[in-house]
Computed example of a mutant assay.
Amino acid sequence: MIDDIQAKFRELYQQEPLLVRSPGRVNLIGEHTDYNDGFVLPAAINKEIFFAIAPNNTNQVRMYAFDLQESATFDVNHIQRSKTSWHNYLLGVIAQFQKGKYKVPGFDVVFGGNVPIGAGLSSSAAVECGLAFGLNHLFDFGLEKLSLVKMAQLAEHEYAGVMSGIMDQFASMFGKKNHAIKLDCRSLDYEYMDIDMQDYRIVLCDTRIKHSLAATEYNTRRKECEAGVALLRKHYPEITSLRDVTLPMLEQHQAEFDPVVYRRCTYVVQENNRVLVACQHLEEGDMQAFGQQMYVSHEGLQHDYEVSCPELDFLVDQTRPLKTVAGARMMGGGFGGCTINLVETAAVDAFTKQMADAYQKQFGVTLQLYIASIVDGSSLVDC
């Protein structure tokens, strides 16, 4: 695909571009913990957004979205939010450089890729990180990767209007081949965890459904978590987020909680603990034990955090009797998107057929499946 994007750039702008790739991500475990200052375990995968980019010696930014076959032009000196959503992922990044007092000259860019939209693989973070990486290199701004990650996250907040945690952008930028990233979302300390995928493959089952609840309920969950923290701070002033909360603290003050808020907080505290336990299993090479933590994570998301949906629950339940599946759970914000499954390599073909047949029979929808490999984060492309 990068060849097609490069060719389109040459056709549109009659010059040679810099080529950048920026991956989407999976999250093995640790869902809805990032914006609670918790732990996550993502990995960059071989579903990627590619960029062809070059300066144009004008005051204009000329963009072409390869997958949509749409173009747009903006004055680089008057960057503001657009009514067209895809514009904002790029404009937001430019705005962050400008806020940091980095002068962005006019440039041309063609971008596109194979990160499925709406599947929970963070196509938006891949776009933001790819452009940030490309501009930093193209104009020699000299920013470190962590600064680029923070800028990409702020672009998501301020221009895309989604108050995401930092996990997606961090995984896209800092990914490492054959490794997951154990990330502390409070301190941004991280550790690469070797993940042995010789005997297992990551298979993503995309429901191809995104229920309309997703955006509003995501923000509601954040507010519910904040309400829980506010209540507990009356007793424990040192608490700043659910990262600081223990299960005994919650249990001691359960009577003071709205029952829904209590369940939300309980899930987050338990999920943080699960990430740490799962990482221990990973260090021990025990993928079966790791997979069991995935199943427990899904049950918490389904019943306590209530961000699953019938399609996701069905797909996870279909895997439970299969000895060839170590673990499965919903992934991402919820109400649609993908399940992530750890499947024995030799059984992948049989698994994908069985899951597709069952989903078609149950919902009358063709299940989209992706076999993902863990790759490096954002980088230049050599051609």
Rank of each mutant, 00 (worst) to 15 (best):
D4W: 04
A7Y: 06
R21D: 00
N27M: 10
Y35R: 09
D37W: 12
N56A: 13
T58C: 08
A72S: 12
A72N: 08
D75K: 12
V76F: 09
H78D: 14
W86R: 03
Y89M: 04
L91T: 10
G92D: 03
F97P: 05
G100A: 15
K103M: 12
V110N: 01
V115T: 10
S123F: 01
A126H: 07
E128Q: 15
L135F: 04
G142H: 07
L143V: 05
V149Q: 04
A152P: 01
L154F: 01
M167W: 04
F174K: 00
K177G: 01
H179W: 08
I181T: 04
K182Y: 11
C185F: 01
L188Y: 06
L188W: 03
Q198M: 12
D206H: 00
S212C: 03
L213R: 10
L213E: 15
E217P: 06
T220P: 02
K223E: 15
E224L: 14
A230W: 11
L232T: 05
E238Q: 15
S241G: 13
T246H: 05
P248F: 09
L250Y: 08
E251V: 11
Q252H: 15
C265G: 07
V268K: 00
N272K: 06
V275N: 09
V275W: 12
A278G: 12
A278M: 09
Q280I: 06
G285V: 03
Q293R: 03
Q293D: 12
H298L: 05
E299D: 13
L301C: 03
H303R: 11
H303A: 10
L312S: 01
D317C: 11
T319K: 07
L322E: 07
K323S: 15
G327R: 09
G327M: 11
A328Q: 01
G332S: 12
G332T: 07
G336K: 01
G337T: 02
N341M: 03
D357Y: 01
Q360C: 07
K361C: 10
G364K: 05
Q368M: 06
Q368E: 11
L369K: 11
S378I: 06
D382V: 15
